[in-house]
Design a protein around this nucleic acid. Sequence first.
DNA 1: ACAAGATACATAGATACCGAGGTATCTCGC
DNA 2: GCGAGATACCTCGGTATCTATGTATCTTGT
Lengths: 179, 179
Amino acid sequence: MLELAVLGFLRDAELHGYELRKRVAALTGHVRPIADGTLYPLLKRLEGNNLIVRETRPGQVAAPRHMLSLTECGEAELHTRLARPGELFITDENRWFTMLAFLRHLEDPAEQATVLRRRLDFLTQPASFFWDGDKPLRAEDFADPFRKGLFTIATATSRTEIRWLRETIAELETAAAPA
Amino acid sequence: MLELAVLGFLRDAELHGYELRKRVAALTGHVRPIADGTLYPLLKRLEGNNLIVRETRPGQVAAPRHMLSLTECGEAELHTRLARPGELFITDENRWFTMLAFLRHLEDPAEQATVLRRRLDFLTQPASFFWDGDKPLRAEDFADPFRKGLFTIATATSRTEIRWLRETIAELETAAAPA
DNA sequence: ACAAGATACATAGATACCGAGGTATCTCGC
DNA sequence: GCGAGATACCTCGGTATCTATGTATCTTGT
């Protein structure tokens, strides 16, 4: 997930590690810092795989910075990951939101729509904690206030997302096949 | 996260591994299966730490089952984890939803309210991807349809959850200090 | 009678991420 | 002039989880 986020942010603009770390931390809407010990080894790995390059420059404010930017290889890798994401990137909230943050870099509306459709399929399949056999539960069915809250929140999110997915898929399809 | 889920589910009822796996998979509202290779070593570890016990019984349908149940130690451990969760269990969606699913086992309304308040504090702190300096962004501010969607979904979730948190904290506080 | 699929458990090896610690520079308040 | 805090980078060791693979049993369809 972090690799995708790093490649995506560097596609937007060249950055140094510290700034990258702050952006990744704020990605999902709230501050969830990632550890130094996660980021820096990851940057080394990406550099080793020739996906990014670094250039040392005197620091603007303090210590010298390593400005990072994507190589052509890195751009290709980003494209592949966005176009053919693993199942976890569709089903896991954090990973999916990372996908959304950079899906624009896919550029082809048809490819974008394909990814959104996979998420929509996942969200609309009924098997879930919130079904009693084959009939859906309602908030009133929960005696436990915390599970009721869990249900309320999950339902609100799910409804909002499904509506947005349907609208956006429709728009992308008209864009892909113009009159 | 999985350890919490396992302890929580076994607090609800004694289960065998296979059933446990299905319940955990469906926990967050959608089917996100956990790997065998994650669950079974984890069960061994919990057994080694004396938090659960297993009892082999002939299988109802197929192969023999290991019925699992919480020890007293395990119940105490569950209580500790629910009452004093690490920061990640407040800020990470998946982990937080797992907390919510079992918070009822904490029983003391004051302790429950304390946990909910930590989440509320986290959600209401302004630093975020969705602020431009110190003024909040709106859906219209996004040219990128995917980031706009991300924003729309995150906002809907956040609003629903904050409202629920405030209501529930108020209810728990009246329960904790009866007239 | 035999294959497919669900049930049920297990291990080995790899990967992703975290936490604690360390180095060094610059700015600002006191 | 000195400490606190922000900027900026790095390593080591550990944990949590995944993927791939393997072993059985029972049920159901054909």
